[in-house]
Amino acid sequence: MRILHTTDTYAPIVGGIEVLVRALAESQVALGHDVTVLTRTPDRNTMTSPSANIEVCRDPRALASLVAGADVVHGHVSAISPLALRAVEVGARAGVPSVATVHSVWGRAWPLFRATAAARGWNDLPIQWAAVSEVAAGPVRRALGGREVLVVPNAVDTGYWAPTVRTRHTDVVTLVAVMRMVSRKRPLELVNALHRMRALVPDHVAIEAVLVGDGPLLGAVRRRVDRLGISEWVHTPGDVAHPELRDLYRRAEVFIAPATHESFGLAALEARAAGLAVVARSGTGITEFITHEVEGLLADSDPALTEHLARLCRDEATRRRIVLHNHLTRPAFDWSDVRELNAAAYVQAGAVDNLVGRSSNPEPKFAA
């Protein structure tokens, strides 16, 4: 089966959509499908480059020819995704089964997308819409006048991230955050929360915080850390490779996700699979896999987030209870499950049913 993924951003950019698209494409190649990724992201001035048996085309002018040769077009949509949206439009008009997966929370911008949908005729096209969480699906459904929107979550290789020991016993409580250093991820607010948190934890409790990630705000984050006088225990190494991040998770206990408009939270899912207790904002897609007081703690405000972090640092019993649960219970969002849901979305769009995996035939989940 010839699958065309379209995404406005892709490697070498590092982010949720970029990681997700590559992992999904690789998992489909492993099943014997012919997969191409079309993106606007350049890579050393070359138009195409191979990636684990995935053909990567970086020339948007090839859209029409790639759609004509595809059995399925899968567009990966964020807040601004002209290429991905154009691809599913072209595919749907050409009679090629087309799926548009929304990876961001449109939120208050949904009326703008509703106007765009009317102007572009999306409701008259046989595009199968999907979103990565219930939180993300709601605004999409409103923008499209109540059309059914599949919920097809993101996924990780849970076996890769799985912890190697049952519990962690260290003299230092290690907190980790992984994010693009951009305003929507709220890294500066996280630095402020860590500064306030330290005052709520007894001095004898040793704490280390590692804020992983690169982006335009990294310099501002480092300056804020220095200005607040917390650089001895708050570290900002920039981007790290997955093996190094996995090693970090294996000595850490708490993961922090401060964003308030998180559509899913792929990094948080990786940390959850690694056994960390996750502290995140409520009302985000992270609630798809984090229940308050079970896999982590959910906060409805920044002060509550600060208090939750302080509680996990000073309350060893609570911290170890959640970490032990996450060590013993693997999260559900493994590629072996989610790959099948993507295939079911292709079938829903009109693709032949042999796209669905070999061992099961799951029904896609619909937003309520």
Rank of each mutant, 00 (worst) to 15 (best):
R314F: 13
R319D: 04
A345S: 15
T287H: 04
R330H: 01
R358G: 07
W335P: 02
V323K: 00
E316W: 06
H325S: 10
L228F: 07
E295T: 00
L324S: 12
V254F: 04
A241Y: 00
G238R: 09
L312A: 01
G285F: 06
Y346R: 08
H261G: 11
L269R: 02
R330E: 08
H308W: 15
E244I: 01
A280H: 12
A280D: 07
A257Q: 14
A343S: 15
R250E: 15
G229L: 08
V352C: 02
W233L: 14
L245H: 04
N326W: 00
T284M: 06
L305C: 05
R222L: 01
R358D: 12
S263Q: 07
S282M: 10
L297G: 05
Y249L: 10
T306S: 05
A299C: 05
G350M: 08
A344I: 03
D353G: 00
Q348K: 15
G283R: 08
S301K: 13
D300W: 07
A267F: 06
L355V: 14
D353K: 05
E340D: 14
E316N: 07
A332I: 01
P237T: 13
P237Q: 12
V225A: 10
A343C: 13
R330Q: 09
E295W: 00
W233S: 12
L309D: 08
R311I: 14
V225W: 10
A268M: 04
E244G: 03
L341N: 06
F255M: 15
V240T: 14
L309W: 09
P258R: 00
E293A: 14
V279L: 02
W233E: 12
D239H: 10
G296F: 02
R358E: 13
N354A: 13
L248G: 08
A268E: 01
A304N: 01
I286Q: 07
H235V: 08
R281L: 13
G238C: 09
A299W: 08
E253Q: 13
G265K: 03
A274D: 03
L298K: 06
A349W: 10
A332K: 08
L245Q: 09
V338K: 03
L341T: 05
V347A: 11
G285H: 08
R281W: 07
H261T: 15
E293M: 13
R272W: 04
F289D: 03
G238L: 10
L305F: 10
T260M: 12
L228V: 01
A274P: 02
A267N: 09
R314K: 13
V323H: 01
C313Q: 01
A273L: 06
V323W: 00
R330S: 12
A257W: 05
E270M: 08
L328K: 00
L305D: 03
L309T: 07
D334R: 03
P243Y: 03
V234M: 10
G350P: 07
W233P: 12
E232L: 04
S231H: 04
T236C: 15
V225T: 14
A273E: 01
C313N: 06
A257H: 12
H292K: 04
A273K: 05
L298S: 09
L248S: 11
V234T: 11
H325G: 11
H327Y: 02
F255Y: 15
R319V: 03
H261M: 13
E244Y: 03
T284P: 05
R246I: 04
R321D: 11
S282G: 15
H261L: 14
L341D: 05
H242A: 09
A259G: 12
R339D: 11
V356Q: 09
